[in-house]
Design a protein around this nucleic acid. Sequence first.
RNA 1: GUGGAUGUAGCUCAGCUGGUAGAGCCCCGGAUUGUGACUCCGGUGGUCGCAGGUUCAAAACCUGUCAUCCACCCCA
Length: 451
Amino acid sequence: MSKLIQPPKGTRDFLPEEMVLRRKVMETIRGCFALYGFIEIDSPVFEYFELLSRKCGSEIEKEIYVFEDKAKRKLGLRFEFTSPLGRYYATNAEKLTKPFKRYIIGKVYRYENTQAGRYREFYQADADIIGSYSMNAENELLDLAVFTLEKLGMGNYEIVINNRKILDGIINAAGIGENKKDAALRALDKTAKIGEAGVIKEFKENGIGEENYRSFMRLIDLDAGLEDSKKLAVLKERISVDLKDESIKNKTNEGIEELSSIIEDRRNAKAGKDPGFSVIKFDPLLVRGLGYYTGPIFEIKSKDVAIGSFAAGGRYDNLVELYGVRPEGACGISFGVERIIDIITERDKDILKSLSSPIKLYIVYLSENERTFALKTANFFRIKGINTELSVSEVPNIGKEIKYADRKGIEYFAVIGEKEASEQKLTLKNLKTRKEIFLSVEEAAELIECN
RNA sequence: GUGGAUGUAGCUCAGCUGGUAGAGCCCCGGAUUGUGACUCCGGUGGUCGCAGGUUCAAAACCUGUCAUCCACCCCA
């Protein structure tokens, strides 16, 4: 394909049949957000670069699309919704009712190399709560996630949780200094990928000793057979022995309490047939973006399709004060719409074909003599709320029109010829069953509506 | 930003040690002027990703570049 007619790297065109699924997924998410009492907002696709880059690491900063406007303002495309949310909240705090529960679905941009499930322009759907320090907020988000994923038919997935406070405590107990913390966490996060030797190597490259790694691992070496709540209890005991600094110890215990409370809540939710409990898992090696998280963090991954996590989030209690307003507890969850769509498509390769067209009826009339009746008929269906396409062919050819309608996935096909017009009726054909009947316009509407 | 693989028709792909491009599917027209399939007949469609270079001659060889995929990095 020539360069000019190819969409820019990492961006894509969507065909009409793909849009049906995309719309369905986004509407499902939107509906679930609303069911949980979140309200929709919108904010600009671009913000001042300085605002976007404020709390993200240098790695992320490289991924921001930057540009200058004609007045030389330095702007950037949003790469996620959290810092724009902080800005939005600070700007409008006086007008918002708190706790502020909002959602936003929109495109975000990241300048990074493309891969399967990784694009430069993609949709994210975020739900956040600002104004609560309680774990009830986390629980609401996780409940929302479980509910939404069921609705979407995501198959098997796993919610992995951890807590930044716990990580900080263990890092400290393992003798890793504050200045080496980020490097250590980044390496530890990769354990599953690069293995023990790999992590130790990375530790050394960053001037952290193997013994630090060993003591970190000793602290989180928990019997895999234990329930998460028991694991946390064991961890708490070890921390109380190994941590000398009282304030860090308290912080860490706080983190442990928080996770225990979340797990407990999920267990209780299970009574209401919530599958979330069985899929939630404490993982002391989960790290996530080092930017602004301050408490519980979580990540949701498919167990059916290897594509990285498709949703993630956590608590970021010190976000809004960055923008000069009174501190508020806050946490949020973000769904990767494209990844969700990729997983759905991967699990059911025929899904695009099985989704029906938003257009329900196709009308063809055979000559100008029938045009008036055809127009009236189309209008009748449209008033009834039935999406109707009226043929615009110059020379009507039923065979061709049927093929056209069928290819577009339209289920009903109405023919208006001399006979139909004179009797003010329709020949209505169901393109799936291939059966056709002669009936009145009202009867046809009823038939289509109850289908 | 780093490393690897790939790039030929709308799609899936063939194309030998260099000799100037093919198949299947799709699409269009007809057999069939009020009915989708099948069949048959006919037809459209390619600056071989792009730009240079080597050569009498390049889809093929060399260099660069762009894109896709994979692995890093990082992440939805």
